[in-house]
Design a protein around this nucleic acid. Structure first.
Lengths: 265, 265
DNA sequence: CGGTTTGTTGAAAACACTCAAGTACCGTGG
DNA sequence: CCACGGTACTTGAGTGTTTTCAACAAACCG
């Protein structure tokens, strides 16, 4: 790591084949996006019918972004409703560290205070669809939609919580543990948005993206994943993962599902 | 790291000798604590005379904590005015990761929203003195002390920014780079509170604490520091550091001083 | 002064990275 | 249809970093 460096060309950040494939499989409409968003926010705190109506009113056409498109700050507020993105930082020599992933249902640019996290560079990892959330800050400021506001606060708290998990993962866990932990985090978050089938869920990430998230080299990610497959911990095919022994994985990774209620305000 | 583990006994977390020594050298009074706090907050945004008076009014006797005392959440709001503390997490087998350091002038438990960061476990690393900040949330809620409120928002933003730096450090930097980067961060923060003399500043941390912060083993921290000494990058004696070649250090670590003005709200 | 913690060193092993080459897969264009 | 180019994935070999274990020295504490 000290000597030769992998100069991460940004153009290199391209979508997983399977992700591209699946994104073309079926039309994805506004209705479906709203459903995912609603499901995710309701998992944080039950929304009122007014909140739901407000979200539907956001309407507007879905913003569509190709994979590997950098969304330049300052971010327009939006809800990601399909596809994956990430926040990242680059070192001056090109090493990249992924700060966190953005999954369907996640908000971008909606943190009340202009926080450092929001000024991270963001790039889509797959083909993405987003819903403009421009009216949201005003609606919240005017004390309407208190439940929606609460859900968004909890979403921010969750983001921060994942940041802390990430620090422990990078600082004190082995390659194996890091990957187990990350997979469990992703599965938990996708489950909140109703995008899992049991322990089976989409993972449209290349091994390079996994490496940049876990602080490992691509090759080592590859070998570690294969070891996990050999040990029947996971199955990994066609951009989908199956966690075969979730309890064992959680023990290996020392994973504890977050409890949004805990940050109740 | 996989096999044998260092079962971090919490009782083990003891203060650096030099820190203990210096804490006994001279009496440390309320006035001095207020001065450090004021200097630090003014570095974030200029406080009004009313703000300053309010801070002085916090008064109350200084809370005094010995080293290695865990401050149990929920945190009573307070300002740390002398000594060092840290937020940390433990893995179930005892591995410890330090999430961030708390330095004189830093606030604890003052983040408006109950954030995950505030629910981290916190322990003093050295003998500490703190000022109760109980009245602060109310004062802010009543829209008085807008400048003080702004300073505290900026302080929170800075904390978050250090979290992101920490992630990059742990994920993508070598041992050498991590230590350089951490030293530069600490010196910048201490300088804000007026606790440095040029590039010379106190570092009351054991190598174990540095290891738990940088995600390295104690032994490797030791060797890396010695290498840095041999290369005349730093001097390190009696709990004080001297950064001999700050520009070179910044280049090695890819360090960029934060700009609080950037998160202006 | 003896006990404790912290810092230091050496040797061996474990872990992770680089380099390099090759394979599989997909989309494209001839 | 197939050859081609591109990307991602896989594998082996060698290297370098980091950890572990163990022992000892130094500094501090009461």
């Amino acid at each position: 790591m000290e000597t030769a460096l992998r100069p991460t060309k940004l153009a290199e950040i391209t979508p997983h084949r399977a992700a591209q494939r699946s994104s073309r499989v079926r039309a994805f409409g506004l209705a479906e996006g709203l459903q995912i968003l609603s499901r995710r926010l309701n998992a944080l705190t039950p929304l009122s019918p007014q909140d739901e109506a407000f979200l539907r009113g956001l309407g507007g056409p879905l913003e569509i972004q190709p994979a590997a498109r950098e969304l330049s700050p300052p971010q327009e507020p939006r809800f990601l409703v399909a596809g994956w993105a990430c926040r990242f930082r680059l070192l001056s020599d090109g090493r990249r560290q992924i700060i966190g992933f953005l999954l369907p249902g996640d908000a971008l640019g909606l943190s009340e205070t202009a926080r450092p996290l929001e000024s991270c560079r963001v790039t889509t990892l797959t083909h993405c669809r987003a819903l403009s959330a421009g009216p949201v800050p005003n609606a919240i400021r005017e004390k309407q939609h208190t439940q929606l506001a609460r859900a968004l606060r909890l979403a921010n708290a969750l983001d921060e919580s994942f940041l802390l998990d990430h620090i422990v993962r990078l600082g004190r866990q082995t390659a194996n543990e890091r990957l187990c932990h990350l997979l469990l985090e992703l599965r938990w978050r996708l489950a909140q948005a109703g995008l899992t089938q049991g322990w089976h869920f989409p993972l449209p990430l290349t091994q390079e993206m996994l490496a940049d998230a876990t602080g490992l080299s691509i090759v080592h990610v590859n070998r570690t994943l294969q070891q996990m497959r050999r040990e029947k911990l996971i199955e990994l095919r066609h951009g989908m993962v199956h966690l075969l022994q979730p309890d064992l994985l959680a023990e290996i990774a020392d994973f504890h599902a977050p409890d949004p209620g805990q940050w109740a305000a």
